[in-house]
């Protein structure tokens, strides 16, 4: 048990961050982290020293998170109002927003948008890989990503308006 707890101590902070980014909220992130570590301990002897260990752990965690929302992601309907709205230019250069607030924006995204945004933008997955992971077409992946970006821009804009 000590080896397992050691492993948990080393990687839990990093993997919990992954969970927070991929999940709807804090509670879901905790659940996902828990499930991920149980999978990791079960599969630990499947790790064959190919690639970095941390990368392997991260992949398991991402997979667990994707699994969690796989069924609900397809059903969720997105606000159509957004699509008609033209988003105004935002000056990102001098923009400083607290990490927690950015994280909150991501978490508020519809499940599938959040996953695609995370996978593509934050974890450098290609649309091809995403399409395989989520069982969708590459086109869907691309259009969902642009919608996710649109929503995020909107949220940043609103946030700026309230703080100014």
């Amino acid at each position: 048990m000590s080896a397992q707890s050691q492993l948990y101590q080393i990687y839990s902070d990093k993997l919990f961050a992954v969970c927070l980014k991929y999940c709807r909220n804090y509670e879901d992130a905790e659940d996902t982290l828990q499930d991920s570590f149980i999978t990791i301990f079960k599969k630990i002897n499947q790790y064959k020293n190919k690639g970095s260990f941390e990368g392997w752990l991260k992949r398991i965690t991402i997979n667990t998170a994707l699994q969690k929302y796989r069924d609900t992601a397809a059903i969720q309907v997105v606000d159509k109002i957004l699509e008609n709205k033209k988003t105004e230019e935002i000056n990102f250069k001098y923009l400083t927003i607290d990490v927690n607030i950015l994280l909150g924006f991501i978490q508020k995204l519809p499940d599938r948008y959040r996953m695609i945004f995370n996978l593509y933008v934050l974890d450098n997955y290609s649309h091809k890989e995403i399409s395989k992971l989520l069982g969708i077409s590459e086109g869907t992946s691309k259009s969902n990503l642009s919608r996710a970006r649109k929503i995020l821009k909107e949220q940043i804009k609103n946030y700026q308006a309230t703080t100014e």
């Binding site: 961050a17 992130a29 970006r149």
Partner: peptide, 19 residues
């Protein structure tokens, strides 16, 4: 888009959170 992506990438890249 790049600006938006960068904003998130830079801020969330080294994010760590203790559960």
């Amino acid at each position: 888009n790049n600006n938006l992506d960068k904003l998130f990438q830079e801020n969330l890249k080294n994010l760590e959170a203790t559960p």
